[in-house]
Design a protein around this nucleic acid. Structure first.
Lengths: 196, 196
DNA sequence: ACCTTTGCTGACAAATTTGTCAAACATAAT
DNA sequence: ATTATGTTTGACAAATTTGTCAGCAAAGGT
């Protein structure tokens, strides 16, 4: 009996991820994805019954991955400052590699596709990180505020410039390289901003 | 001779803006927009020849408006600190009122619709603001960095939390009201972060 | 060799979305 | 009233996108 070929199914999902998250084709058709994967459309329907089902899986897994990634860093036992520094580095690369991921998620949440997995809730690692943040605020290492807002700032300062790059390329008269050069100084800048 | 009815045309555009920017229906069909406007679809084609043309106009005008809005504040002759404070207030409301606007722009830019208006270039008001930022850095009022990065931080800290609200509602276990409460403390927090 | 299961494909069907058009309608000037 | 001009509409056609299905190919077990 032939083993279930997991190759094509994975190929399709990875291609969908690339099309959606990297190339940012939020309106991509199943044909677009099939072409990009070098397969034909009925195969896509063979593995995923419908476009919605493919999107649901891609959505759920991507969200899960992001949470896992954040947990791995924020839940690690590094000293606070290094943890934040590490987070910036890792997430900068992560978002750079999938600049349309967050826009995709936002859009899908908004579509209220009832198939999408429900919230997993705040993971314990993040809760612990939030209380670490609170403690650092008491120690005076960082500015006092809601720990949630501290986290949001972190994500904002790292993600936003990458996500909105096309907008600012057009706004400033920059080449892509100019803009990327601008990005390189951000890590230390963000650290400076956060640790007053 | 009957006067050219500008009412319906405006109604359609405003409805499209609402559907795209406020409701975030990035996949909205012409039927969706027509229904939301209370007109029928052929009327939409009467005023705008195609969906693309409608989107082009909505895109161009929205981008223009955003630039005008930014210019009006950043190009004003308020003292630097008040100018930044004013910007935060105004833009917070602006983005709150159209949370999907930036995602829409990003997505459309990416679609490389050849009809979209080309970059207007960095407006002189923004150039002036950037040199003001540079001067404040020399004076030591704010941290030294690329002035562009200063601007990007401003936009990031104001926009990102609003744009990505659905994502964080799901991540933290917050109600919409909880999250909004979190937002209220951001203005002073951002000011504190920026003016070290 | 034969059967069985899984994967792939072309051809077709259905659904959705967009675009068109002629006719009806409204309004104001003549 | 008639005409001219701009607007709205229903009905239709075209294009696009999605979904289905029967059949073929491959591969492993009997």
């Amino acid at each position: 009996m032939p083993v279930k070929d997991v190759g094509t199914e994975q190929l399709i999902k990875e291609t969908a991820r690339r099309v959606f998250f990297v190339e940012g084709k939020l309106h991509a058709t199943t044909q677009d994805i099939a072409d990009a994967a070098g397969i034909n459309r009925p195969s896509l329907h063979y593995y995923f019954r419908s476009k919605n089902e493919l999107i649901r899986q891609v959505y759920d897994e991507a969200k899960g991955e992001m949470v896992v990634k954040a947990n791995a860093i924020l839940g690690s036992d590094l000293p606070f400052r290094e943890k934040v520094e590490h987070f910036i580095t890792i997430f900068f690369n992560y978002v750079t590699g999938a600049p349309y991921l967050q826009s995709f998620l936002i859009n899908e949440i908004n579509c209220k596709n009832p198939l999408l997995g429900k919230s997993t809730g705040t993971p314990p690692e993040v809760r612990r990180f939030l209380s670490e943040v609170e403690e650092e605020m008491k120690k005076g290492t960082i500015r006092k505020a809601s720990p949630e807002n501290f986290m949001i700032n972190l994500f904002a300062l790292v993600s936003y410039p990458i996500i909105m790059k096309p907008l600012y390329l057009d706004f400033f008269e920059h080449s892509s390289d100019d803009y990327d050069r601008l990005m390189t100084e951000r890590k230390t800048m963000i650290m400076d901003m956060i640790f007053s």
